[in-house]
C-alpha cells in the first residue's frame, strides 16, 4: 500500500493553517510528521482520518482516493479520551465491535493487547482509576485492537515514562516489520530517528522538509566537517580558523566541544587537513559531519523561535 498526500490546504475561517502539505509513505515503513506546537501536524492527521475536510489537495491510496472508512485504521488521536466510568475491558470490546470485530474476536484481541501493553491486570477496573501512563497504554491497546493495516499515532509518546516508551517503541517496530503503514507525529526526535525512514517537517503550516531520512542527513552533512581539539577551547580554535583558514572554509557553528565548518570548495577536505597539520593543531577529531535529526529540525523549524 502506498499513501500519497498531495498539496493539502486547510482554512479555519479566514485563517489558512496548512499551506500545501505533501508526503508519501508505503507499507512496511514509518513516516514521522515533525513540527513544533501549532505547526499543523494534528490538523494534517485529522484530515487524513476525515475528522475534518481539507479545502484543497488530494489523498490517494494506491492511486485511488483514500476513504478512511474503507480501511482498518488504528488511530490514536491527540485528544485522548475514552469512557472513564466504564471498565477497561468493556470499552475496548465495544470499540472493537464498532470497528467490525465480532464479540469473540474483540474480546480475544482486547486480552492480547492489554497483555502486550502490560496492563492486563486492569481489565476489570474502571478506566478513571488508572494512572495517566496506564490510561495511555489502554489507548494504545485500543488503537491496535483491530490489527489495522494503517496505524496513525498523534504524539504517541507523550505521557509515557522511559520504560513504557520502550514498550511502545518495540510495538511500533514490530508493526513496521509486519508490513503495516505507520504515520506518527512527534517532537521527540530521538524516537523518530529510531524507526522512521521518511520524515516530513512542518513549520507554521508549511512543509519545510520531507523525504528519506538517510538522504536528508547525507544532504545536510554535505560540505560540512567536524573538528575538535584536545588542548584548545572551541572558541579559540574557531578564532584561529577564521583568521588563517578563511580561503578554505567557513566556521558554521561553534559548540562546546566541537566546531562545525563548511568547505568553500567540495575538494577542500585534504587541503584543510594538511593545513591543520602544518599549524600543529592538536586534533581530537576531524571528519564528516553527520547531523542528528534534532540539528536538522532546529535548523528547519526553529528559526522563528
Amino acid at each position: 500500500m502506498k499513501l500519497e498526500v498531495k498539496n493539502l490546504k486547510k482554512n479555519f475561517g479566514e485563517n489558512e493553517v496548512l499551506h500545501g502539505i505533501s508526503f508519501c509513505v508505503e507499507s512496511g515503513s514509518a513516516l514521522g510528521l515533525l513540527g513544533r506546537n501549532g505547526a499543523g501536524k494534528t490538523t494534517t492527521i485529522r484530515i487524513l482520518m476525515d475528522v475534518f475536510k481539507s479545502n484543497s489537495g488530494t489523498i490517494l491510496m494506491d492511486g485511488k482516493p483514500f476513504i478512511p472508512r474503507e480501511h482498518q485504521i488504528g488511530y490514536l488521536p491527540e485528544e485522548r479520551g475514552l469512557y472513564p466510568k466504564k471498565t477497561v475491558g468493556e470499552q475496548l470490546i465495544y470499540l472493537g465491535m464498532l470497528r467490525g470485530l465480532g464479540a469473540k474476536a474483540a474480546k480475544a484481541n482486547m486480552k492480547k493487547w492489554l497483555e502486550r501493553m502490560e496492563v492486563a491486570e486492569y481489565e476489570n477496573r474502571k478506566l478513571e482509576t488508572l494512572s495517566k501512563g496506564n490510561q495511555q497504554k489502554v489507548q494504545l491497546a485500543q488503537t491496535l485492537l483491530c490489527n489495522p493495516d494503517i496505524i496513525i499515532l498523534d504524539e504517541p509518546f507523550s505521557g509515557l515514562d522511559p520504560v513504557n516508551s520502550q514498550i511502545l517503541k518495540d510495538v511500533i517496530k514490530e508493526q513496521i516489520q509486519e508490513g503495516r503503514l505507520v504515520i506518527f507525529s512527534s517532537h521527540q526526535m530521538s524516537y523518530v530517528e529510531e524507526f522512521c525512514e521518511e520524515i516530513a517537517i512542518l513549520n507554521h503550516g508549511d512543509l519545510v522538509l520531507s523525504g528519506n531520512l538517510r538522504e536528508i542527513k547525507r544532504e545536510f552533512g554535505r560540505d560540512r566537517l567536524v573538528l575538535s581539539s584536545l588542548e584548545e577551547e572551541s572558541e579559540e580554535l574557531a578564532r584561529r580558523l577564521r583568521d588563517t583558514f578563511s580561503d578554505l572554509l567557513e566556521v558554521e557553528k561553534v559548540q562546546k566541544d566541537r566546531i562545525i565548518i563548511r568547505k568553500l570548495q567540495p575538494e577542500n577536505k585534504s587541503a584543510i587537513l594538511k593545513r591543520l597539520l602544518e599549524q600543529d593543531v592538536d586534533m581530537e577529531f576531524f571528519g564528516m559531519y553527520e547531523p542528528s535529526l534534532n540539528d536538522i529540525f532546529v535548523e528547519k523549524a526553529g528559526d522563528e523561535a
Binding site: D50, V51, P77, E79, R80, G81, L82, L95, L98, R99
Partner: peptide, 12 residues
C-alpha cells in the same frame, strides 16, 4: 466532555 469523540467519529 470525556474527549472520546475523536475515536468515535472515526470508528462509527
Amino acid at each position: 466532555s470525556n474527549r472520546a469523540i475523536e475515536i468515535l467519529v472515526t470508528s462509527v
